[in-house]
Structures are given as structure tokens and as C-alpha cells.
Design a protein around this nucleic acid. Structure first.
Lengths: 219, 219
DNA sequence: TAGATTGTTAATCGATTAACAATC
DNA sequence: TAGATTGTTAATCGATTAACAATC
């Protein structure tokens, strides 16, 4: 076991979900021209444990300086790199409804490594129009274009009953990863990466906890 | 320790996040007039472990029948009840941008126990208009209306730099829970429930895993 | 040097998974 | 009855937290 070869530990998913929070707060501190930041400062801002912050940060491969903390620029770079947000991944979006359109309007996605280069829909009214400079194309072209353009990420903002069909089309085209907003479980081969972003999951946690809270403390 | 008093175990958060998935698949089965369903059927449909499904379901307080499985209607009811989706919680939304507008258009939220009854914005162009029958009011009215109408849930779909101010206004009015889509950590007293629904968290998991995947298996 | 902060190793906690008894 | 499925108790696994040594 040589010291030389940097031991790469997998980054646990809970940690991955916290990294964007670190980026948020560090970006704010950067605007205030802060140069070094301690795990304690971060943990206080985010209501986390400072040990956890240190553990999370160490998983991105950065080293801090005792007594000083972490160099802000280095740290941000390390976080961006771990999330692969220092690369830009091209993506296709399927379903130009209201949520889809909202996502097409998000210019900040490029900061998050995501570049939606075209959208697909089957509504003739929408096809041919553009949103935020992104053209809306007929769904029939989806498979072929993924193939030709080697697009890796598909974003699904379709109604439940259309999501699986379009998923299959994406997979046929050779998509590698799907970001799914449709309220269904998508079936796909194991080697296709599926990340669900259903609002219902988060909402369920909220409504359940609220009910518990009101039960123990009515009014 | 009497057998009588139903022992109420807290429902772990990972379980809560799976419950909506069960509802999805069970609702589909109900449309197909299925009456009983086994934990195995559910686990196969969702790519989960059947033991986990049984454990999750038992936490909602339902009992299945050996050899038969779970009564579909009872099970759905039990799931809805655990999430408190058999009640309707009134909510105010702040920030009628594209994401906010998309949420205002979601009629299905009522199935998820959420009823957005008014929206707030500070854009004079938007104030006074309605979206999906929901009126957009000036932000100044937010605190007072939460107070008067005893609204428990606030939905925040504002830009990062406005989110904390409006959060404070909601808390002043007596809000109990906040569903936060803004890419910031909201500061609030411990007794205020905050559930974050930031897209960046989910996207970060996707982009990180995709990078790992491409590293080990380029093209 | 003393003190603050990092970073690692160990302990704890909680969720998942396994084993198996209970029941229709 | 035999077989399938539930449901509980125990084992495992992984993430969080604690303890403490290392270092500037």
C-alpha cells in the first residue's frame, strides 16, 4: 500500500447532497472577499456538525491548514470538481410543459455542470418554437439526435404516462443518465443512471412532519 | 407495557421518501382493478427489497394477510394517512417566477395534501393577476395574511437573495413549515420545519455519478 | 510556546438486510 | 396439509459523532 497512490474513497450520497450547500455558503463568503474559512464557520452557517463538515470536505480530496482553515478558492474548486461541475454536460430535455419550461429558463444550470441544448415535445403548437434560445423539437427526433450528438444526460419533465416510453427512446439512443421529474419509477437497465427529483418525496416528508408537530402541539 | 396501546414508532425519513413511490405504483394497480398486492410485487416494480417494503409498510400501521398480501384500498389509505395526504394543508407561495408559476399550475398537489391558496410577489406587473385561479398579491401582505388565515405552510420559490427576508416575514406571521426551493440555507428557529427541495442536490448526485461512470468506462 | 484547527481512528447510532417463526 | 406470505427479532452495514493525536 504505497502512500503515493491517492486512495480514492467513494463519496457517500448523503455527502454528495451536502456539497451544493457548501458551495452556496462559500460562494457568498467569496463575494465578501474571505480567503480562509474554518469547518466551524461553515457548520454554523448551515446548522451542521463541524466534524461532519471536515469529513465531507476531506472526501473531496482537499487539505486544510491547521489554525487557518481552508483556502476558499481551493475549497470551491475541490467541491466543483467532485460534483463534476467544472465540466459541462450537454443534456436533452423531454416535456416542455410548465416545469420543463421553467428548467429551460434556468441559466444557473451551467454553474451546475448542466447544459440543456434542446427540448423535445409532441405538442405541434410547441414544436419549432424556442425557449430561452433552446429549440423545441418533435419527440421522434430524440433517439437519433442522442445517437448523433453523443448526449449523455436526459431530463424528463413529462406526465407519468409518457415518461417510460420516452425513457426507452433515450436508452435506445444511448443515453447514460436520466434526471427524472415524472412521478413514476422508470424501468431501465442497471447501467443507466437514474436520479429521481420528484417533488412528492420532499413534500411527503414535510406534510408528515407537520402533522406530527401539530399533533403534539396543536395550534 | 400493555399490548393495547398501539406502539407508535417514528417513521424514518428514508421510509417517508419511499412512501410516495408505493402510492404511485399502487394507484396504477388500482386502476387495473387489483385487490390484493404482495410486498414482492411492489418490490419488483420499484427495484427494492421486499423485506424493506414490508418493513416500510408495517411502519404505516397496516397489517397484511399471509398468503394474500395487502388489501390495496387499505394499504393506499394507510400510506395517504401516514403522509397526512388525506388532509389538505393550505399554503402560500412566495415568488411567482417560472418555477413558482409551474407549481401554481400543479393540480395534483391536492392529492399530495397541499393546497396553494395564494401567491406573493413584488413585481407590480404580476400583482393582481391570477395563475390557475390563484391570485398574486404584494409581498407586504404576506405576514398579515398568514396571521389572519392561520396558514401553516409556506412555499419559497424566490431567488437566493430574497429568500431569507421572506422567510422571516413568514415566521413573523406564524408559519409552521417551509418548503424551500431557493438555493440557500434558510435560518429559522428550531421549531420551524424546513424541508429543502433544491434541484442542485439531486443534480449533484447525478453529475458526480456520471463522471465516475465515464471514468471507469469511457464512451 | 500555547492555542486553534485539521484529520484520523474508534465508538455509536440508525437503517438495511437476513433469518426465521407465525399464520392463513 | 403444504406452501406462500407476513412480520418480528437479530445481524450487518454504513453514516454520523466522539475522542484525540498531529500540525501550523
Amino acid at each position: 500500500m504505497e502512500k503515493e497512490e491517492k486512495q480514492i474513497k467513494p463519496v457517500p450520497e448523503p455527502t454528495l447532497r451536502r456539497l451544493p450547500k457548501y458551495i452556496n455558503i462559500l460562494t457568498k463568503l467569496k463575494r465578501e472577499s474571505v480567503q480562509f474559512v474554518s469547518s466551524n464557520t461553515i457548520s454554523e452557517e448551515l446548522g451542521l456538525d463541524s466534524i461532519q463538515v471536515r469529513k465531507d470536505l476531506s472526501l473531496t480530496g482537499i487539505a486544510g491548514k491547521p489554525k487557518l482553515g481552508f483556502n476558499l478558492d481551493e475549497l470551491l474548486h475541490s467541491l466543483y470538481h467532485t460534483l463534476n461541475w467544472d465540466n459541462i454536460n450537454d443534456a436533452f430535455l423531454a416535456g416542455a410543459g410548465s416545469l420543463g419550461s421553467a428548467l429551460l429558463g434556468y441559466k444557473t444550470f451551467k454553474t451546475y455542470g448542466l447544459n440543456i441544448i434542446a427540448a423535445f415535445d409532441n405538442d405541434p403548437e410547441k414544436i419549432g418554437t424556442t425557449l430561452n434560445g433552446i429549440e423545441i423539437l418533435p419527440v421522434e427526433k430524440l433517439t437519433g439526435m442522442i445517437q448523433r450528438m453523443h448526449v449523455n444526460i436526459g431530463v424528463i419533465t413529462l406526465p407519468a404516462d409518457e415518461a417510460q416510453t420516452v425513457t426507452d427512446m433515450m436508452i435506445d439512443g444511448g443515453i447514460k443518465a436520466i434526471w427524472n421529474f415524472a412521478p413514476v419509477h422508470l424501468k431501465a437497465p442497471k447501467d443507466i443512471l437514474i436520479e429521481n427529483a420528484q417533488l412528492s418525496q420532499s413534500l411527503g416528508v414535510l406534510t408528515h412532519k407537520l402533522a406530527e408537530k401539530l399533533k403534539s402541539n396543536p395550534l
